[in-house]
């Protein structure tokens, strides 16, 4: 009986180890998702294309930006003061920065080429820059570490594949392509929990991120009726319907209010 136990225990340990190691090897985080084929030429006739412009604003008393405490990593401390939280960034006359505005619906079955340029999501001063960015499905996005410290780039999508990769040295880059449409994919750094970025992934090129003046311009849209959505990380979403004729310019204005 005792001998049987002595034999059984090592066998049990080896079996568990083998099973768990096999399971662990199947869960890698550097794999890039498969990307569907895309056309090489735009289906939109440039001669009839129009655009939708507008502005995103914030109504009410502007919240005071909170200071970001970076003491946990001395390499992150900004010279001459603390960084501020980027959740709500306002410009002049209530202009709301970092809103992601895009065509949510109305393009039908149109399929678009994948852009060859590679947007960069930089980690600088222990903040993601830009804070909000958009890419197309299948387009490469480069995540760069410009800091003299280490980061982990951790994307936590719901429809795309999650990944978490380390960048221990300055200048390191990680390139990723998303496989499916998703608004928005949050990025975080678990080393520096205040670091947040949001990547809008769309299957078309009609998106924009508002700058300090709160404006946006969705260029090259074919004539049609579109649902335009403005997304903001803390204030939520708003939609509007805009119809444009050939070579026409439509407008949309979004006004967000403080969350109660």
């Amino acid at each position: 009986m005792t001998r049987r136990v002595y034999t059984a225990i090592p066998v049990f340990i080896i079996t568990v180890l083998t099973a768990l190691l096999a399971a662990a090897c199947g869960g890698g985080n550097t794999e890039q998702a498969a990307v569907p084929d895309a056309p090489t030429v735009s289906p939109v006739d440039a001669a009839t294309a129009g655009n939708v412009t507008g502005r995103v604003t914030f109504a009410g008393t502007a919240p005071k930006p909170a200071a970001v405490r970076m003491e946990s990593d001395p390499n992150c401390m900004p010279p001459g003061g603390a960084a501020t939280d980027e959740a709500v960034v306002l410009g002049q006359n209530g202009a709301l920065q970092n809103a992601f505005v895009y065509v949510k619906d109305g393009l039908g079955d149109l399929r678009f080429p994948i852009p060859s340029n590679t947007p960069v999501l930089d980690q600088k001063g222990c903040l993601y820059t830009p804070h909000v960015i958009g890419v197309q499905v299948g387009q490469s996005i480069e995540i760069l570490n410009s800091d003299p410290t280490l980061h982990n780039v951790h994307a936590v999508p719901t429809s795309n594949q999650e990944f978490n990769t380390g960048q221990p040295l300055p200048g390191m880059k990680h390139t990723h392509r998303f496989s499916t449409r998703e608004v928005m994919v949050p990025f975080k750094c678990d080393v520096h929990p205040w670091m947040r970025a949001y990547v809008g992934v769309l299957d078309h090129p009609y998106f924009a991120v508002t700058g300090p003046d709160g404006s946006f311009d969705l260029k090259g849209l074919p004539p049609g009726t579109y649902t335009i959505e403005a997304w903001h990380e803390t204030l939520g979403t708003q939609t509007q319907t805009v119809t444009i004729a050939a070579k026409e310019s439509g407008t949309a204005a979004f006004e967000f209010k403080p969350k109660s």
């Binding site: 946990s72 410290t149 982990n152 380390g166 221990p168 678990d190 080393v191 929990p193």
Partner: peptide
């Protein structure tokens, strides 16, 4: 998830990971 790899630590052997990199999480 502040150390994304295992059993290594940011590519280092766990026991040789530099102390000056033990920051944040």
């Amino acid at each position: 998830l502040s150390v994304p790899d295992w059993p290594t630590t940011y590519g280092w052997n766990m026991f040789t990971f530099p102390i000056d990199k033990w920051v944040g999480g």
